[in-house]
Measured scan of single mutants.
Amino acid sequence: SLEEAIRRAEEALRKGQTFEYAGIRVTTQEALEKFRKWAEKQK
């Protein structure tokens, strides 16, 4: 689910890792916010 993907992205960010979902790379807090906004639109 998208909620699960967001949780995994947050977890990866805390560990300093890269999270990738549907071709979207989350490597920074800013990218995480963009990913969250994108995920909201997918619902």
Rank of each mutant, 00 (worst) to 15 (best):
G23Q: 04
L13D: 00
K37N: 12
A5W: 10
A31Q: 15
I6E: 02
R36H: 06
F19S: 01
E11I: 09
T18Q: 11
E30S: 10
K15V: 11
A5G: 03
R25I: 15
Q29W: 15
L32E: 00
L13Q: 02
A5T: 09
E11W: 03
L32Y: 07
E40W: 07
R36L: 15
A9D: 00
A39R: 02
T28G: 06
F35L: 10
F19I: 03
E3H: 09
A5I: 15
E33Y: 05
K34W: 15
E30A: 12
E3Y: 08
A39F: 07
R8K: 12
L13N: 02
Q17P: 02
Y21L: 06
R25V: 15
Q17V: 11
Q17H: 11
R36Y: 08
T28A: 03
A39N: 03
Q17T: 10
R36P: 00
R8W: 09
V26H: 02
E33I: 09
A12D: 03
G23V: 01
K43A: 13
T27Y: 07
K34G: 11
K41G: 15
E20Q: 07
T27P: 05
A12F: 07
I6W: 05
A5S: 05
R8M: 14
A39C: 05
R8C: 06
R7F: 10
Y21S: 02
G16E: 05
L2I: 10
K43G: 12
W38E: 03
E40N: 08
R14P: 01
R36M: 12
K43P: 11
L32S: 00
Q29G: 08
F19G: 01
Q29F: 14
S1D: 15
A12M: 08
G23K: 02
K43V: 14
L32I: 05
E33M: 08
G16F: 05
E30F: 06
E10P: 00
G16A: 04
A22Y: 09
A12R: 03
S1A: 13
R7A: 12
R8L: 14
A12P: 00
R36A: 06
G16R: 02
F35Y: 03
R25E: 12
R14F: 09
A22E: 12
K15H: 12
G16N: 08
R14L: 12
R36E: 05
F35V: 02
R14M: 13
A12E: 05
K41L: 15
Q17K: 09
E40T: 06
Q29T: 11
K43S: 13
A39S: 05
F35K: 00
R36S: 05
R7M: 12
E4Q: 10
Q17W: 10
E3W: 11
W38A: 02
L13E: 01
R36F: 08
S1Q: 13
A5Y: 09
E30L: 09
L2S: 02
Q17A: 09
L13T: 03
K41F: 12
A12Y: 07
K41A: 15
A5D: 03
Q42D: 06
E11A: 09
K15D: 12
I24Q: 09
T18R: 07
G23A: 04
I6G: 01
R8H: 11
K43Q: 14
R36T: 08
E11Y: 03
R14T: 11
G16Y: 03
K37M: 12
E40F: 06
Q17I: 11
A31L: 08
Y21Q: 03
F19P: 01
R36Q: 08
W38H: 02
E40H: 08
T18L: 12
E20F: 08
I6F: 07
R36N: 03
Q29V: 13
